[in-house]
Design a protein around this nucleic acid. Sequence first.
DNA 1: GTGCTTGCAAACGTTTTGCAGACTC
DNA 2: GAGTCTGCAAAACGTTTGCAAGCAC
Lengths: 153, 153
Amino acid sequence: MARGEDLARSVEDVLVLLRSKGGRVTTARRQLLSALFDAPSHVTADDLAAAVQARAPDVHISTIYRNLDELERLGVVVHTHLGHGPATYHLSSASHGHLVCESCGATIEAPPAVFEQLAKEAIERFGFRIDPRHFAVLGRCADCASAGSAGRR
Amino acid sequence: MARGEDLARSVEDVLVLLRSKGGRVTTARRQLLSALFDAPSHVTADDLAAAVQARAPDVHISTIYRNLDELERLGVVVHTHLGHGPATYHLSSASHGHLVCESCGATIEAPPAVFEQLAKEAIERFGFRIDPRHFAVLGRCADCASAGSAGRR
DNA sequence: GTGCTTGCAAACGTTTTGCAGACTC
DNA sequence: GAGTCTGCAAAACGTTTGCAAGCAC
């Protein structure tokens, strides 16, 4: 059960983990990790590519995807589908649920406690173990809700 | 506040609603609605296209998308992003939350009660009004969870 | 040297768009 | 007849893949 998330405290930690699984340490990987550690949460693969390319221009977006995949397999990052649009990625240590406003796109990071009761209900009723990191709860933020029911979508 | 969902009890109801907004009643729309009323929940645009085309072969997938959009604007249908893959649509009257297993893809329809506490927390903490119809909660279903932590992804 | 990783280009599946013609009202 | 809706083709979008060359070990 010991997983990447426990060990991934720094870029170097992850590189060690990677090497221990027979992986190689490359510039692309080092830069991607560095971008992930620096990034605000909710970065898209594209954002990450831009950050990486600022320092290593030749790194291709497909390499970003491949490595994000790899890092996810190691448990170092998770990705989330925020409603429409591209998936967003972040370190699994920065785990949290998301509340995304359908009107204005604002994203609120919700502490796990908010999902606790839901998690409990899901287990009790269906034996279903939710993973609150992996999806977004859509709705209306305070501002948009009070702006009236005007403007659906 | 009176919205499509309240009135949309049958294909004809929706057509009336449509007409009242200056829309026209066409074969494509009639068939799409009929497909929606017949369909199990969680149908993709493609599924709907297939159902419609069984009776009206020339209806193009782009028409399906355009009309689903329109119907969503009217509040008659909602769409949901089930993890990866295509969006799924259903009548908003058939509203419910979704629990989707990341391992096996099983979909559990959860009654609104399951989301009640989450809804309350979100409002209290953030003034955020959740829309539990519009997203999926990912995790592990009972079978996959008990099958051990084997098989991440 | 072995074999994991990469860049590139090309494909993928889903969804959106522009347009001219067809149809509803 | 006015204006909405349609089919079609083509593009957009995010993502994945095959391949040969390149690099870490």
